[in-house]
């Protein structure tokens, strides 16, 4: 088996909250691996800690109020990113690990041209002279499918549409041919037809450049179409992880199961439409006070007394290779409690 490119072990990122001086355990013991060339999807609803996880990898969490607890490990090609000194970390950021964000319009600096912003990474990391960096920027714009790159390179961000801006963001991220691209909700702010363009572009670039992608999203549909493996997060923890086909065919955590049933779908038969949607009762809990025991138990249809008392660890589902499908749920120890739901 190949070595993982990125190993995250027991990542804990906490925030000091204003009210009452409490602590929000936004990310609370998250572990996963990203292998070279693969796409790992992290899915979850708002407040589950998926974005904080992605920001923690490059240590982009504002400190204070946030801090990554000691004992957490983020290892990129054998180097622990959490113990690197700032210059060493900067050599990795934007170079070997790059990131794109949800809001392309606000992620670009309005006072510099598109070309300047793309060229910057090449100048900083690869010490290219200005002229070559500009040529590189044009080449990158062509790569991400922007028409007339020679002209567009001198445009300012306000002259671009949302989809174009996201393409420029991708071009910026890929200038140094990173080994890992972290994409945090890259299409959430875009329209469906533009979203399809961007997802197709990411797919093509990944195949051409052979990079790994860590895709953060709330949309199960996007994960199903793009990821090789999926990590489902809830309340700051990983609740289920599996290969994509396995997860969608056999979701084992009640949260994963509920989430899949709650999505209104376009591909169901007409007779299934117009009925009630399956819902997960209640609200997503707040990071300043996760429920005791299993964090999902207040919303879980199967919960019993063990779930309220004891927090389940990630258990191996015993399907496929050991460890390939893991679920944080006591149901795995007592499968007969999984009764059909009314």
């Amino acid at each position: 088996m190949t070595e993982p490119l990125l190993r995250v072990r027991d990542l804990k990122t906490y925030f000091v909250t204003e009210r009452g001086g409490g602590t929000a355990r936004a990310v609370d013991g998250v572990s996963f691996d990203v292998y070279p060339g693969e796409t790992l999807g992290i899915v979850g609803e708002s407040g589950c800690g998926k974005t904080v996880t992605s920001l923690s990898i490059l240590r982009l969490i504002p400190e204070p109020p946030g801090h990554i607890l000691s004992g957490s490990l983020i290892e990129f090609e054998g180097r622990n990113l959490l113990t690197l000194r700032p210059p060493e970390l900067r050599a990795i950021r934007g170079n070997e690990v790059a990131m794109i964000f949800q809001e392309p319009m606000t992620s670009l600096n309005p006072v510099f041209t598109v070309g300047d912003q793309i060229a910057e990474a090449a100048i900083v990391h690869q010490r290219l002279p200005r002229k070559q960096a500009r040529a590189r920027a044009i080449e990158m714009l062509r790569l991400v499918g922007i028409p007339d790159p020679e002209e567009r390179v001198d445009h300012y961000p306000h002259q671009l549409s949302g989809g174009m801006s996201q393409r420029v963001m991708i071009a910026m991220a890929l200038v140094c041919h990173p080994k890992l691209l972290i994409a945090d909700e890259p299409t959430t702010a875009l329209d469906v037809t533009i979203q399809a363009q961007i997802l197709e572009l990411l797919d093509r670039l990944q195949a051409e450049l052979g990079m790994a992608v860590l895709l953060i999203t709330h949309d199960l549909g996007i994960v199903a179409g793009t990821s090789d493996r999926v990590v489902v997060m809830y309340a700051g923890q990983v609740v289920e992880t599996a290969a994509t086909p396995e997860l969608f065919a056999h979701p084992l955590h009640p949260y994963t199961e509920g989430l899949m049933a709650a999505v209104p779908r376009i591909d169901t038969r007409v007779s299934q439409v117009r009925g009630r949607l399956h819902t997960i009762p209640g609200q997503v809990p707040a990071a300043s006070g996760w429920p005791a025991g299993c964090r999902f138990h207040p919303r879980c249809p199967y919960a019993w007394d063990r779930c309220t008392a004891e927090e389940p660890p990630l258990l191996d589902a015993g399907r496929g290779e050991p460890g390939s499908h893991a679920v944080r749920c006591w149901l795995l120890t007592e499968p007969r409690r999984r009764t059909p739901q009314a």
């Binding site: 037809t193 979203q195 996007i222 199903a224 994509t244 086909p245 376009i266 591909d267």
Partner: peptide, 14 residues
């Protein structure tokens, strides 16, 4: 038709 086909479907086998 394009709008419909652009909607991501939560089913990897689709």
């Amino acid at each position: 038709a394009s709008l419909l086909s652009a909607v991501p479907v939560p089913d990897p086998r689709a």
